[in-house]
């Protein structure tokens, strides 16, 4: 690349340094200092371990919601990719439509739906059922996550599936593959990069989310994002909040790294038999 073209990435590099690298340094600094004396300390950070159950809860719930998103999103993305290009654009727009509305608003809408005095339970009550415990449990939190992050799953899946060369499918059929084999040996492996980036794009925001668990979960489903938020907002202990964020970041890196093992830079090789 010529020097001139490299210069074009300058604004972005500047942006990254100011808004990502420097804040990361600040987070690291806060994470390693004491909130009362301001001295460097590691000893106080040892108790970060006591939040392990909450970390695990966050990871567990977001993995489950990522899998649910995949199960729902894959067929949707596949169907969209197989329609006419003009229909594709419309359907793609519809998938993105919920994202035009505030995330908080969408979550609050679910609260209004699921509450004991909410729309669903009022309706069920008229039929003589319930009130069912639809809200303030793990299922509701997972539902909230899956609902909010589903578009992030469909988008990368769609963009990968739509690029799959249809001649490969025909070739497989010519060579005697039934539809299951076509899917499992041609389409699925080829869409693997989409699956990995879709799962990553759902998992990463879900694992650090707050608010969803506060609104849809019970007092016992607090996630690590809620703890971090509370430390910055009410407790004035940014040091603990920063330390938890750092651990979460490390955890996310490990998880994403593991997921990326599924796909390699030479991903297409898998189909060459």
């Amino acid at each position: 690349m010529s020097k001139k073209k490299r210069w074009l990435s300058g604004p972005y590099v500047l942006w990254m340094v100011i808004f990502t690298v420097v804040p990361l340094g600040v987070v690291a600094y806060f994470a390693l200092t004491d909130n009362i004396t301001g001295a460097f300390t590691l000893q106080k950070r040892a108790n970060v371990g006591s939040y392990l159950p909450i970390f695990l809860r966050s990871v567990g719930l977001s993995l489950v919601s990522a899998v649910i998103c995949l199960l729902i999103g894959y067929p949707v993305a596949y169907c969209i990719a197989r329609t006419k290009p003009s229909t594709q654009r419309l359907l793609y727009l519809l998938v993105m439509l919920p994202m035009c509305m505030s995330f908080l608003l969408r979550t609050l809408a679910w609260v209004a739906l699921l509450e004991d005095t909410g729309i669903l339970n009022t309706f069920l009550g008229k039929l003589g059922i319930g009130p069912l415990p639809l809200i303030r449990n793990y299922a509701a939190v997972i539902l909230g996550m899956a609902y909010n992050y589903l578009p992030y799953m469909i988008m990368p899946l769609y963009s990968v599936i739509v690029k799959i060369d249809h001649r490969l499918v025909e070739a497989a059929q010519d060579l005697g593959c039934n539809s299951v084999q076509v899917f499992s040996r041609v389409i699925l492996p080829l869409s693997l990069p989409g699956i990995v980036s879709g799962v990553t794009m759902v998992f990463v925001p879900a694992v650090s989310t707050f608010y969803i668990s506060q609104k849809l979960g019970s007092t016992g489903t607090i996630l690590i994002g809620d703890v971090v938020e509370s430390q910055f907002k009410g407790a004035y202990n940014p040091n603990l909040g920063a330390a938890l964020s750092l651990v979460l970041m490390a955890l996310v890196f490990v998880c994403v790294g593991l997921m990326n093992r599924f796909t390699d830079d030479d991903g297409e090789e898998i189909v060459t038999i």
Binding site: Y51, P53, I54, L56, R57, G60, T219, G220, T221, I222, D226, V227, S230
Partner: peptide, 11 residues
Amino acid sequence: KTDGGNTTMYL
């Protein structure tokens, strides 16, 4: 606020 939850199950 962070108390509770079935730790062993999550582990």
